[in-house]
Amino acid sequence: MENQSSSPFSIVIDFDTSHLFFPTLILWLLGLLGLAILIQKGPAFYRAVASGEKKLRFFEPDADKVRLFGTLGLMVVYFIGMDYVGRLFPNMGYGFWLVSIPFLFGLSCLYAHELDKRKLLYITLNALVAPTFAWFVLSELFNVTLP
């Protein structure tokens, strides 16, 4: 054990900084891989873009931005809303229950095509029943903590 330090493979990990040992290793590895990808794919990619063969665009030409950003927006409002309402009634799970109803209704309406009366009925029923059922089973029956 004593002459370990002379071996080229020996390594001493200081306990106080041991939390950084592996992440540092991984960061180096990630950097090297990134560099390798750049070298391997970079030139061809650059040529393709420069010649106009490949367009640098994030969205598909016919992207449905209303539905995409609508989904994101509704989810953000949903999360903030249930946290807020949940705090008004601590530990009752009402935040989840009460805010899920408009969220389900809103998202369904956003996603449905050619909204008619029949679809609206389904959507309303679903928005009322699903969260109520989930809340009742999880929070009331199984005592699971909900927002």
């Binding site: 994101l72 989810m75 953000v76 969220f103 998202l107 309406c109 095509h113 699903a130 903590t145 909900l146």
Partner: peptide, 30 residues
């Protein structure tokens, strides 16, 4: 249009409950 909202709702309840009530886990989802 009915299934997706339900999936999101169930994912939210699961994410919140996995560590017994941590709101950050719900944000991780997004």
């Amino acid at each position: 249009y009915l299934l997706y909202p339900i999936i999101i709702m169930m994912c939210v309840s699961g994410a919140y409950a996995i560590n017994y009530g941590i709101m950050f886990d719900v944000w991780s989802l997004l």
